[in-house]
Structure formats: structure tokens, C-alpha cells
């Protein structure tokens, strides 16, 4: 039972991280209809920039994540302007090739600045509490709480604020959006900036638990794609439910079956979803 509670908390913390990373990807898909294969490298850069502010500059942990999110939002906007905007009328394959190019570029930049070796970010929040006999580290509690707060703010932004609503407007009807004066180009920039900032929050939260490496985004990239396919491409609730489902499945499988099976479970889930319900659990306008 204690083991189960322990794993449940680990799963929730991991789920929070997956959600934050997956939401950006699903928003970009909803607005631009492109799978941003470079999303994992934005997450990786987010982790390194957080590391830079925390360790090199020496600002407090939460401020470091916040500053890194702002830096990555700018990088996200630049990525949209320089790489994806010029390709907006090009065939789909061009976006994917460009995204792979951006991925290699970001990895090379990270390697040039921080080197290829693993780096460790000491957990700024130490200690743990005992809940129902299970030792839960404060870091994991912080992850879950922050994820919930950020998801709440994001939902408010997208549903209530006029700028956030433009994201949904573009997803639902591009022509209608243009005709009310919403500029697709501005919404694309907003979406990329937001997606990169969310990936950074995810990375900054999980960095003290994991190690930093220029390739750390690769595994995450595959998993967030699994999550948004599971939840339904472009669906916000889908990304949230998918994120927690996959994280819990992963943690539980690692514990009760084997660690290797835990790593593979994401892909078992994708295969099952694609076989049984190819549009995802929360299907929305995937067809063009």
C-alpha cells in the first residue's frame, strides 16, 4: 500500500510535467495543423536556461523558471517567425523537415554552450513529508501544485481572455477568424510563445529529479506525441487526461512489471488507441 501511494505521487508529478509539455504541442497542432517535432528540444532548452539562471546567475528557483519561460517564449516566437511563418503555404512535409532541422540546431546550440555531458541541477527544495506512510519529496509536491496552478491559469486565459480566445477561434474556423479581424500570424506567434513557455515550466520543474543533457528532449518528444494522440490531436482536455494517464501507466508498469516495460508502455498505449479509437479519446476537428 505504501509503495502504491509512493508511486501514485510519482505518477501525478510526472503527469503534471507531461501535461505542461503536451499542451503546447496540442495547441500548436490545433492552430497551425503541424506536428512540431522540435517541441522536445524547446523543453530541453528550457531546462538548460532554467539551470543557467539558477546555478550560473543564482536567482531563486521559482524566479529562474519564470525567467527561463520568458526567454523560451521569445525563442518560440522567433522559431515561428523564422522557420514556420515563411512555410505557412508550403506542403506539410516542409514543416516536418524544418522542424527536424530546428531540433538539430537547438541540440547543437545546447551542446556548444553547456557541453554534451550530463549536468545535475541540485534540488532547491529538499526534504519530504510522510503521507499515509509514504515518503513524498517536497519537489514532487511542488511539481503537482505548480502544474495545477499553471493549468488553471492557462484554461482561464484560453477560455476567458480575448487574446486566448483567438487561439480557439483560429482552431474552429480560420476564415471566420480572419473576417472578424483576428490575424492568424499573431495567433501563431502567441501559440508558439505559450507552448515554449509551458514546456520550460515542465522542464524546470522536473530538472532537479532528472539529469540535463542536450538529448533529454528526444524521449519526451515521443511521449508527448503519444499523449496528444491518446487525447485527440488539438484537444486541451485530451492533453491533460492523456498526460496523467500515460504518466500513471508508466510509473505503475515500471514498479509492478519492470522498468523497461515502463519505458515502453507509452507506445503500447499509442498502438492500442490507434487501433481502437484512431481519433483519440477527446476527438475534435482533426479532419481538415
Amino acid at each position: 500500500m505504501t509503495l502504491f501511494i509512493q508511486q501514485l505521487f510519482d505518477g501525478l508529478a510526472l503527469g503534471g510535467v507531461y501535461c505542461l509539455a503536451a499542451i503546447g504541442l496540442t495547441l500548436i497542432f490545433g492552430v497551425l495543423r503541424i506536428p512540431n517535432l522540435a517541441h522536445g528540444t524547446l523543453y530541453m532548452l528550457g531546462a538548460y536556461v532554467t539551470y543557467f539562471f539558477l546555478v550560473t546567475v543564482g536567482v531563486p528557483y521559482v524566479a529562474a523558471i519564470g525567467l527561463a519561460a520568458v526567454v523560451l517564449a521569445v525563442i518560440g516566437v522567433l522559431l515561428e517567425r523564422i522557420v514556420f511563418h515563411p512555410l505557412r503555404n508550403a506542403p506539410h512535409t516542409h514543416h516536418m523537415i524544418a522542424a527536424v532541422g530546428a531540433m538539430f540546431f537547438f541540440q547543437a546550440v545546447a551542446q556548444a554552450i553547456w557541453g554534451a555531458d550530463f549536468r545535475r541541477m541540485e534540488s532547491p527544495i529538499s526534504g519530504s513529508v510522510t503521507i499515509l506512510g509514504a515518503q513524498i519529496s517536497w519537489q514532487r509536491i511542488v511539481i503537482v501544485v505548480t502544474a495545477v496552478i499553471v493549468l488553471g491559469l492557462l484554461t482561464w486565459f484560453i477560455k476567458r481572455s480575448i487574446h486566448g480566445q483567438t487561439i480557439e477561434a483560429i482552431e474552429q474556423d480560420r476564415t471566420g477568424s480572419s473576417l472578424v479581424g483576428i490575424s492568424p500570424s499573431r495567433v501563431s506567434m502567441l501559440t508558439f510563445g505559450l507552448a515554449a513557455a509551458l514546456a520550460t515550466v515542465a522542464a524546470g520543474l522536473v530538472a532537479p529529479i532528472n539529469l540535463l543533457a542536450p538529448t533529454m528532449g528526444d524521449a519526451l518528444s515521443l511521449k508527448v506525441f503519444a499523449i496528444i494522440i491518446l487525447g485527440g490531436l488539438g484537444s486541451l482536455p485530451g492533453a491533460i487526461v492523456g498526460g496523467f494517464t500515460l504518466a500513471l501507466a508508466e510509473v505503475m508498469t515500471s514498479t509492478y512489471v519492470s522498468a523497461a516495460a515502463g519505458e515502453g508502455i507509452a507506445f503500447v498505449v499509442i498502438v492500442l488507441v490507434l487501433a481502437i479509437r484512431p481519433t483519440g479519446l477527446f476527438a475534435r476537428a482533426v479532419q481538415r
Partner: peptide
């Protein structure tokens, strides 16, 4: 106001109207 309307079908009517006032 285009042929085929191009409303934001999943949003409430009032949100559609408010987005009409976006500019």
C-alpha cells in the same frame, strides 16, 4: 458576413459575438 456563415461552432453565441468585436 460570409456565405456558409463560418461561425465558431463550439463556442457559445455570446463568445462568437464578443469575438466579432475583437478589433
Amino acid at each position: 458576413c460570409p456565405e456558409g456563415r463560418h461561425l465558431f461552432a463550439k463556442m457559445p453565441v455570446e463568445k462568437n459575438l464578443m469575438l466579432g468585436g475583437y478589433v
